[in-house]
């Protein structure tokens, strides 16, 4: 049993302070109203206690002024809370450009993480301090939730789709990683650690665990093994579109719609090709649903991402190029100063 009783988890990300500030503000508001109500109730109850059994106090019907006061003042306060909460939430949703990419798969009952350079971990995640990290997450079975209290970060991990979130660690150390969405028998065993390291130490760690094959390279091998290459040829002679320069760029669909080819789009094109057909092509691509594991899918996505070429524009554009994504760990030492 611990002897001290902390009230906050360690703040270890750029978001932690912002969430804690909002929390403290809400505590203030609550204490104010809690104490106000308690004082009024107790003092009225004592001051106006029944003194004789026949007492019949004069009725008071109400007061429009008072009632408007205690409608409008709380309304004003909750609107402040609303805007504040929304502001923090949008900051959490907006992934900074040039983040380091990490892929995460949840599976009963473990977390599998993959770095772009090919390192894979189970129930562990190593990241450098001061570098924004973008997570692309999915699940192989039920819904899980990726929760790191020290980062004030949580995201439901839903099977059949990609979700993204991000964090930027501000403090080295080892922190809890929990699954926060009930997922069956060993839900409470689906835990791990996030280790935040100095960039140099992180480099050493990366080098130590290197498999020699980056995620994209593993994806390229799958691309050949699964015979994707027969239809998707770099010379545009195949039955499918050429995949060079697709990622991060707009794609025109047969329906006339234009979408940006992000991770979720690429994943969908592989497991459910019929959902969105590229303009000018026949819907002949077979589905790979159930044939490729989520981890392999992520490798394929990383490979196609690496074929993306320089981005043109658009919000996803900055993430498109494989070069910065893979290079960002290497770039980390340079960003140390700004990160902290």
């Amino acid at each position: 049993m611990g002897t001290e009783l902390p009230l906050f988890p360690v703040p270890a990300s750029t978001m932690a302070g912002r969430v804690d500030a909002l929390y403290l503000f809400l505590i203030l508001v609550s204490v104010f109203f809690g104490v106000l109500i308690a004082t009024l109730v107790v003092s009225f109850a004592i001051r106006f206690r029944r003194r004789s059994p026949d007492e019949r106090p004069r009725p008071i019907h109400g007061s429009t002024v008072l009632e408007l006061t205690w409608t409008l003042i709380p309304l004003g306060i909750v609107m402040v809370i609303f805007l504040w909460g929304a502001e923090v939430f949008f900051a959490m949703a907006r992934v900074p450009p040039a983040s380091m990419d990490i892929y995460v798969v949840g599976k009963r009952w473990m977390w599998k993480t993959q770095h772009m350079t090919g390192q894979r971990e189970i129930n562990e995640l190593h990241v450098p301090v001061g570098v924004p990290v973008k997570l692309t997450l999915t699940s192989e079975d039920v819904i899980h939730s990726f929760f790191v209290p020290a980062f004030r970060m949580k995201k439901d991990v839903v099977p059949g789709r990609y979700v993204t979130t991000w964090f930027q660690a501000t403090r080295t150390g080892t922190y809890h990683l929990f699954c926060a969405e009930y997922c069956g028998t060993k839900h409470s065993g689906m835990i791990g650690t996030v280790t935040v390291m100095e960039p140099a130490a992180f480099q050493t760690w990366l080098a130590g665990g290197a498999t020699g094959t980056s995620l994209a390279a593993a994806g390229e091998r799958l691309f050949q093994d699964l015979a994707c290459i027969t239809c998707h040829r770099a010379d545009s002679e195949g039955r499918g579109p050429k995949l060079e320069g697709v990622f991060g760029h707009p794609v025109t669909l047969a329906s006339g719609e234009r979408v940006t080819a992000d991770e979720a789009y690429i994943r969908e094109s592989i497991v459910n090709p019929a959902a969105r057909i590229v303009a000018g092509f026949q819907p002949v691509m077979p589905t790979y649903q159930g044939l490729v594991s989520e981890e392999s899918l992520m490798q394929l996505v990383a490979y196609i991402q690496s074929l993306g070429g320089p981005a043109t524009a658009g919000p996803g554009a900055a993430l498109a190029s494989p070069a910065p994504a893979i290079a960002s760990p290497a770039a980390a030492p340079r960003s140390r100063g700004q990160g902290r």
């Binding site: 929390y23 809400l26 508001v29 609550s30 909460g85 900051a91 004030r152 970060m153």
Partner: peptide, 23 residues
Amino acid sequence: FTIGGLTGLFLAALGLDVHVTDT
């Protein structure tokens, strides 16, 4: 009920709910 309702405000605040939901 006052305490319950006030903590409902914590949960309705988007950025804060991210941290406390499912806890």
